[in-house]
Each structure stands twice: as C-alpha cells, then as structure tokens.
Design a protein around this nucleic acid. Structure first.
Lengths: 344, 344
DNA sequence: CTGTTAGCGCTTTCAC
DNA sequence: GTGAAAGCGCTAACAG
C-alpha cells in the first residue's frame, strides 16, 4: 500500500484516478466503494491506480452529499481532563475506531466561549454533541433548538428532558460504607471536600443511608472544606481528637484520603489495623502509591463515555428513542486495596 | 439572536435564506460574509432572515471549495493526557479560538491503530497534524509522503528532517542543580525513574553537567528504577544509608520526590533544613499537596503546545519556512516552593 | 448593486 | 458493465 505523494502535491481526486484507469468517475467511485456492478478486472485496475497515486477519498465531499459527517463534538469545561479523557476514549470505542472522529473543544468554563465552540461545531455539521462538565452539579442546558442531539456526561443538564449520564455518587457513598461495615468497622467518620459540589453532598448522603440501614450513626458530622491533601491531614487530626475511637474514615476523594493516611501515620495509628481508610475516584497516581495502597471508589468513567456515545448514537439514528430522557446515574465500583484490608 | 429551529428540522441552507429574502444565493452569500458590494438594506434583510430561520453556514461546503478545512489532527498515544491536554489547549490558543478545530485521536500506543487514525484524518482533509507522544524518546516518523505538514510534540521524530518540539530535559537537570547550589547545597544525590526513558538519562546528564561546572560530584550514581513514589521511598532510604551526609536530592519526577519526602520524614530529617528536595514535572496535584510543598521543574507544556501550533501554522502557510526543521528543545522553568527554601 | 454561471469532489440515479 | 448527468451547499468569477 503506497503512502501517497510528496507533501507538496495536491491530494489526488477521483477524476484523476478515473482518467488514469481509463474509466468514468462514476465507475471509479463504484469500484472503490465496492458498490454496483463493476467487472472484476475494472475494479482491480481502478483500485491499483488509486493506490499507486495515493488517492484518499475526500470525506468532505462525501459528507456534503450524505448529509452526515461521521463526526462528534466533545464540548468540555474540564481543564484537567481527568474526566474528559476516559470519556473520549470510551466514546471512540463505542463508535468503532475510525468510523467517527471527535472534535475536542475546551470552553475553559466560560459560557461565551462555550457558545462560540458550539457554533463552530454546528458549522462543521457534527452529527452529535457530548457535553462534559467537571463537576456533577447540574449545568444549564444547551437548549432544545439545536439541529443535532446532545448528551450530557458527568455534569448532567438542568433540564430533565435532556439526556444526561452521571456517576451515581450516592451509591458510591453507600458502597464505601458497606465495604467498611463488611470489614467489621462501625465507628466511622466522613471527611469530604468542597461543600459547593453536589458530589460532596451526594456521597455524604449515601454514607448516611448505608450507616442508617445498619442502625449506626456517623462519628461527628461530615466534614466539608476542600478537595486537598492538606484538608485531609487537618481534618483527620480534628476527627481523631474529637472521636479517638473511630475505626474507619470514609473520604470524599483520594486526595483527602492521602492526607488522612499521612496524619494517621504521624499519630502512630496503623492502617488498616487500627483505622481503615477509603478514598474516592480511584485516581491511580494517588491510590497505588499510597502507604498502604488506597481502597477507593471508581466512577467507571470510560464506561460512562461508552454509554454516552451509545446514547448519542441512538439519538442520532433514525428513530431517536424517546424513553431514554432524564438523568441516568451510572453504577460505580469498589476497588479494594490495602488501606481497608490488611495484606499478607 | 435566534437559536435555530427545532431539533427535528433539517438545517437551513443558503438558498432557503435567499429565497425568503428574495435575493439570489450569491447575493445572500455576499451579504452574510460581508463581502462584495451589497446595499445596506439588502444586507440587513438577508442577515435578518438568516437569523430568523437559524441559518448556520455549512463549513463542509466552504471547505470543499476553499481547499482548506480549518481543522487539525492531534494524534496521540498519551493515554493519561498529562501531556496532550496542555498541548491541546496551547494549540487552541495559538490558532485562535473558533478558527481551527481539533480532531483528537488516541492511538493507544498501537502502530496499526495510529495508521488507521492517520488515514481517517487525511480523509477528513485536516490542514495539519500534531503528533504527541508520551515519552520524550524519539519515535518513528510518519514519513514525508503525507499531503499535510506534521509537527511532533513532546516525543520528537526519529527523522531529523521532521519538525519536532520537545522539552529540554538536559537544561531541566541543570536548572534543578543550579537551584540547589544557589541554596547552598553541595552534597547532592539523584534519584530518577525508568532507565528505558530518554528523559531519565537527559535529566541525569544535565544534573552531572551542572555539578561538574561547579567542580562537584554527585553523591553516588544516579539511581534508576521506576517513576513511582514507592521507588522514591526505597531509593531515598538507600541513598541516606550510603551517603548520610547528603544535603539535597534531585528527583527525576514529582512522584519520586513525594516518596523521597516521605522517607525523609520517617527518618526525622527536616526538609528543607537538613535535606532539600526538588521534583520534576510540576504536576500540581503532587507538588502543592506535599509536605512541604515541592519545588519542581515545569516543562511549560502549554507553551510547547502553542509553539507546536505555531510551527504547524507556519508549515501550513504559503511558504513553509524550511529552516525550522529538526528537534527544537524548549526551555523549562523552575518553580520554587518550600522543599528547597524554608518558608517563614 | 444584483443575478447567472461554473465548479469544489464525490455519489447516485438512469440510460445505454 | 459502464458512463453521462444531476446535485450536495457554498463561493467566486463574470455579466448585466
């Protein structure tokens, strides 16, 4: 298979192929796309010629004709990309590699910029748009007056008639506690992050539910402040001071959990023997390097991306199934490591 | 400004606008693009009509005609996105928001997949391609037979006639040491990562250069193993055992530095008073949460992205300046925090 | 100032 | 089997 022509040359067109193969453009088209009835010999000659001069079909022309481009816009405000990349990968998987290409646009959390990017995507006739936020708080809808379907991933839309997919943080909180309970813990504290995040409250609610279901209560109130190791360190010290008997700490993020581990170590408490610790997010760089390695809740973001792509795909198809509207809360997953169960 | 029409409707075309505004398509085109001579009144009428029915010009048609699409492919094997995202942002900045859109393709480190993605990008007639690797080791060239210019970012191309931009790791190593020297340190060890990475060797070379220039020698040999906190912890213990007098440790990554900090703490060495520590990468989640906060070397990836975009831009333009070939090593930057200079 | 014409590269009837 | 012709949506000559 040839690699095309020198960089300076103009990309070959179908009519050039046709001329060289001494057939008409339409025949060349059919030959190359395996369509229609073309004699085996003609097809061979055309394909060979195309290969020789490095013909690459112009997808723009095809798209113009077809009315579909096979492109999708990923509109994000997730500067760090912790959420957007797994979602991108999941989407690429779901669409099937090479079938669909993704425009990644970063709006930098700016509504004006988002409108710009949206306009640009529409001009390029994307077949659909996935909007990825960086928090799980509901965000304003792009509206229903768009000519393409939209799916909201991670950050759901405020509008319940939009299609949104977001991790089930409440279930995550429950899952964390159920695991701690199953490890024989019962005196559990909860240190979490920024109270302006819905995620913090959702997880805390799950924590309370699971404790309540077991007839237990949280040690103290959930402690809110920020998603940082520093806060984890400080809060852990406070918690241990006020409730020296805690035998487990559920954390709102892995960063916080790392801080908690540090303080426990400083205070001479053994993990997990004296106090078990569980994080949230399963951010590998933090969890697998911790001492001991950190048990955590994984939001299955790649799966979320795949599902988002699937939902979009469905909405892009001929009969955009109506029943799938609203916020879908996707299951999360427990990843057990040494901070809750002693390794041998 | 209207938002377009209901999702079900077909996107309006220019000829529809023209019909409704009772002008010809060409006049409508001129009016909308502010081109040619159109009476003020006609322009107003056309623009108003376009707005009313939510006309969005079809960029595919424009591109087909213009021969340029205003799109760029970002071909990456950087699964985590630590490198690709800042580069993407820098590129978006450099191109000017909304002017250019970026197709992000993940090849998952697979050469076959990369070829697929490349083909897809060429079919879509991207105006240029930026290839982003996840290591600074040279990678195989995509070849010179492509119809569009290619710039290699982070991972340079093996082919010296390609345009490559990569951080100057050697300078980074020097910068780290020069900083430690300026802090009055002289008994310096070097703990770094995977010896199969060029980055590890380049940084180590810089370290040695700067020490040599000051008439000093490294304490022991550079210690290679893996880019992890665990290795940082283990190596630090070893280093302190063999060279108890070290007063500074230059680390090959922030992860390693975090591990080093942990061990120093465990052993009761004060940082930075007894031992100064410097990391590499300036990965915020690691540096700003460390105790004390970690001084580090920042590779200016966003800048790298901007420069890559600029280089591509130049190569995409009418006279693709020839003199810019080869590997450009971009300057790195020291970010001073509490692990090398005591805070008051 | 405005409209007519041609054509970007391709696919798709529909005759031959 | 093959080719001629129309047209996707738009812009850029050129006449009028």
């Amino acid at each position: 298979m040839h690699e095309g022509q020198p960089a300076s040359t103009y990309p070959a067109t179908l009519s050039e192929v046709a001329k060289l193969a001494r057939v008409s453009v339409s025949t060349a088209s059919k030959a190359i796309n395996g369509r229609g009835d073309v004699s085996e010999e003609t097809r061979r000659r055309v394909v060979e010629t195309a290969d020789r001069i490095g013909f690459t079909p112009n997808q723009l022309a095809r798209s113009l004709l077809a009315g579909r481009t096979g492109t999708v816009g990923l509109l994000t405000s997730d500067l760090e990309g912790r959420f957007v990349l797994p979602i991108l990968m999941g989407a690429e998987d779901a669409f099937g590699a090479g079938q669909v290409n993704v425009f990644l646009c970063d709006a930098r959390g700016d509504a004006i910029r988002e409108q710009h990017q949206l306009k640009a995507l529409l001009k390029r006739r994307v077949d659909g748009i996935i909007v990825v936020g960086r928090q799980t708080d509901a965000r304003p809808s792009l509206g229903h007056s768009l000519p393409v379907p939209v799916v909201y991933a991670y950050a759901p839309s405020e509008d319940p008639s939009d299609v949104s997919l977001t991790p089930d943080n409440e279930a995550g909180g429950r899952l964390a506690i159920e695991h701690l309970l199953s490890c024989g813990r019962s005196r559990i504290g909860h240190i979490t992050g920024d109270p302006s995040y819905a995620a913090a409250h959702d997880r805390a609610r799950g924590v309370r539910q699971a404790l309540g279901a077991a007839g237990l209560e949280l040690r103290g109130e959930p402690m809110f402040s920020e998603w940082s190791e520093r806060w984890g360190r400080d809060a852990a010290a406070m918690l241990l001071d006020q409730h020296p008997d805690v035998d487990a700490i559920a954390c709102g993020s892995d960063q916080i959990a790392r801080g908690v581990l540090d303080t426990l170590r400083d205070l001479g408490r053994r993990v997990p023997e004296d106090v078990a610790v569980i994080g949230y997010d399963n951010w590998e760089v933090l969890t697998t390097n911790a001492r001991p390695e950190l048990t955590s809740i994984d939001a299955n973001l790649q799966q979320l991306g795949r599902e988002s792509a699937l939902a979009l795909f469905k909405a892009m198809g001929p009969n955009p199934a109506q029943g799938t509207d609203g916020v879908r809360h996707l299951p999360v997953r427990l990843v057990i490591r040494g901070s809750t169960i002693a390794r041998r």
